[in-house]
Design a protein around this nucleic acid. Structure first.
Lengths: 177, 177
DNA sequence: GTCTATAAGACGATAGAC
DNA sequence: GTCTATCGTCTTATAGAC
């Protein structure tokens, strides 16, 4: 269970970013919980943005992986639900924080969240989608993603909730379900 | 078209909060666009939080109004779509910014966004809801709200998109649709 | 790997003139 | 209603000792 200071900084940052936002959290806030000095943080990270970057690296890679294989819409939506539930803490911490988004977009990292969203929507809508299919892809994706966010408690999405949520997403995607 | 300095401050704040977050936006950022001094802003607002409070007042009241009348699920979901589309700029500016949420929760204003969300979900799920109905209410609400966010362009949600989105939300809510 | 100390500037907010 | 000037504090980040 030896966490290492670097990992502890990331975990503390995740909690504080979720509560106060990226811009609203200072290095001093982090060290107050860490119990060390500010200089200790700067030994492990070049700057404040590097903490944010390390925090989003793994979940962003997991989302990007979802569209790298051709899967059925059902498999893709199920994967969106499961990935969202498993990285919910990070998503709540920086998912829609404008100050975090602004910093990450300047970093020009490997996986960009906007590109990932577009790829998932394109996979659900299919090639040359009509307005109807484009709207339905949006609807299904929002059920899976934001439904998982709202229904996950204590990092856990119940099996019954998962089944019902996936069924609702498929109904939103296609009237035949 | 006389806007008034106070209203111009709110409009500039909305744009900057959306791009950089509440905590990531300084009074100096606002006055740089306004073309005046910082003291001019403090003539119109007591402090920085008062700008945020003025910005969310109208959209929050509009959302709170949605559950004050007993309407069918279809009418409620349609109202969610329309209200979200019409206040999209404010929602994008502060909808999920943790630094803005933290400030607003301390202000203890009349309408709290968490209460509004709970009321809408309760209205969709009905009394003593089963897990199934609870999940379906979540799914339908997420289609309406986040679907409207994703599909509104230039402040306008197309009529075909609106019709399809409402239908998808109703399918997510109830398999009979 | 962590410390103390400090630089250099940005921040929210105010005083007082006009 | 807006200005200049400023206060005190907080901020990111670094230097150098241990």
């Amino acid at each position: 269970m030896e966490a290492g200071t670097r990992q502890r900084i990331i975990e503390i940052a995740r909690e504080l970013f979720a509560a106060q936002g990226y811009a609203g959290t200072s290095i001093a806030d982090i060290t107050n919980r860490l119990g060390t000095s500010k200089a200790a943080v700067y030994y492990h990270f070049d700057n404040k943005a590097a903490i944010l970057s390390a925090l989003v690296e793994e979940p962003l890679a997991a989302y990007a992986h979802l569209t790298e294989t051709q899967a059925s819409a059902e498999d893709l939506l199920a994967a969106v639900i499961d990935t969202t539930a498993s990285y919910l803490d990070v998503i709540e911490a920086i998912g829609n924080d404008p100050s975090a988004r602004a910093v990450l977009s300047e970093l020009a990292q490997k996986h960009r969240s906007d590109d990932i969203n577009d790829a998932i929507l394109a996979a659900l809508a299919g090639p040359s989608p009509s307005t109807k299919r484009r709207v339905r892809a949006h609807a299904a994706y929002m059920v899976a993603k934001h439904g998982a966010i709202g229904l996950t408690t204590d990092g856990n999405l119940g099996a019954r909730e998962r089944t019902e949520l996936l069924a609702a997403a498929l109904r939103a995607l296609d009237a035949d379900h």
